[in-house]
Design a protein around this nucleic acid. Structure first.
Lengths: 247, 247
DNA sequence: CGAAGTATTGACTTGTTTCAATGTTAGTGG
DNA sequence: CCACTAACATTGAAACAAGTCAATACTTCG
């Protein structure tokens, strides 16, 4: 069978078992979750700051960003989410959204109700722990962003960002020869890194000139992951991925 | 009786019940936790990046910061923690520390083992949920920092930071007439906000000149919380505190 | 083809850093 | 109680990274 939500079930299971083994019983619990699938078009804000959602959203394909806006409409991108991520997992315990969720390109999303997630967590502490840990890795990503945007200059900041994106795609098996699809415009990368398009453009030229990356519209190829990571002072510890991915 | 750890028990209970009521049974569970008290002197790093701690740390008095360093030794302060906070709560599910913990002034800290925390979480999902929520508020604080450091200029950044510190002290009952003890030097505030001492000093002068705050060595008085928050585009939503504190 | 979004480039401006000197405050020990 | 010291705050001037403005090219797509 190939029922609605199987993609979501598989992605979630892969993700949760990336750190600890998931028992047969827990797997059955998780398989019992029912998912609603939605396709969203590009540049759609589907959760707003201030909302009180009753579901969480799992990214199946495409990229979702979390964002906050200044009074005069400038956007700060708080985090970038790729398939397997649950960008609003915190809404499970924090009622009110402190940021919005927007698609970048077209996305396929899977929604699961808070109540059913609470049910599986209540039924098994090891499931609760696995999901809890996901929400903590999210915090670790935030800390990496604070460090990166606070202490690195433009070139290094971009190197750090690309290193992170590369590693996360690598773990997913979505990078071949260092290359992965990446639909964020330079403008949006600037909004994530606290820089303008112009600075991103010039930083990108630096990284290209050093032979570290190739960046084309919609995709990035990392030519020298080690040097790129060193240049961006990127420490993958915080991603808490298995050692096999850390070259 | 006044056994070791009672301060910690009371602080934790107050904190956890700030959002949802804690049942009698849950309270008994939490009261069963055993705490180890330690006094730390000023400027002591007591947990290092890379450590694999087996306990969490509750701040009883004083201020603790979480920090990461660049290769050339510059410090980025990731977050500032006041009494009632558990700065390394994420270590409960993330084995390896991606940052260090340091005292600012002298601190009294209470330590509780991961295993005993897991026990109370396993025993009661409502306790697990309350502690989980604390770890998510931590993430919300991180997002506020990313927004603040990424999109606000120096003056507004400092206003945002002071607004946050003021509100958190207010909730604790540690602010009178808008004034609270705050031992961070301007240098350290710079390390938190991604600015230099000089910029902080000048930003402080702006806020003083506008009649928003008084800052003296070791203490801050907020004269006009509303205007200060507006100037710093500070939205207290993310702290998820009760409405009674939001003027 | 035209239009919209995106990338690139150059010239100029500005906020912040850097450097360096001078006050100021708190704590220490004679 | 004062001299001494270290930490912290304040100030000014010069240097610089990044922002702003604006024009030009390149892509993608209806």
């Amino acid at each position: 069978m190939n029922s609605v939500g199987d993609e979501a079930r598989e992605l979630l299971l892969t993700r949760l078992s990336a750190v600890d083994e998931i028992s047969e019983a827990d797997r059955n619990l998780l398989d019992g979750l029912s998912w609603r699938i939605e396709e969203k078009s590009a540049r759609t804000q589907f959760v707003d700051e201030g909302d009180r959602p009753s579901e969480c959203c799992l990214v199946i394909s495409g990229i979702v960003v979390r964002s906050r806006y200044t009074q005069d409409g400038q956007r700060q991108i708080l985090s970038v989410h790729i398939p397997g991520d649950i960008p609003d997992l915190q809404s499970l315990h924090l009622k009110r959204m402190d940021h919005g969720l927007e698609t970048v390109g077209p996305c396929r999303l899977a929604f699961v109700s808070h109540s059913s997630l609470h049910d599986v967590c209540r039924a098994s502490y090891s499931v609760a722990a696995a999901i809890w840990r996901e929400s903590l890795i999210d915090g670790a990503l935030h800390r990496a962003a604070i460090f990166r945007n606070g202490r690195l200059e433009a070139d290094a900041r971009l190197a750090h960002f690309i290193s992170e994106m590369y590693l996360r795609h690598l773990v997913l098996g979505m990078a071949t020869d260092g290359a992965f699809q990446f639909p964020l415009s330079q403008e949006m990368m600037g909004e994530a890194l606290g820089l303008t398009v112009v600075s991103i453009n010039r930083a990108a030229q630096t990284l290209r000139a050093r032979g570290l990356v190739r960046m084309e519209r919609g995709s990035i190829q990392v030519l020298d992951p080690g040097t790129l990571a060193a240049f961006g002072q990127f420490d993958p510890t915080f991603l808490h991925v298995r050692d096999e991915f850390l070259g």
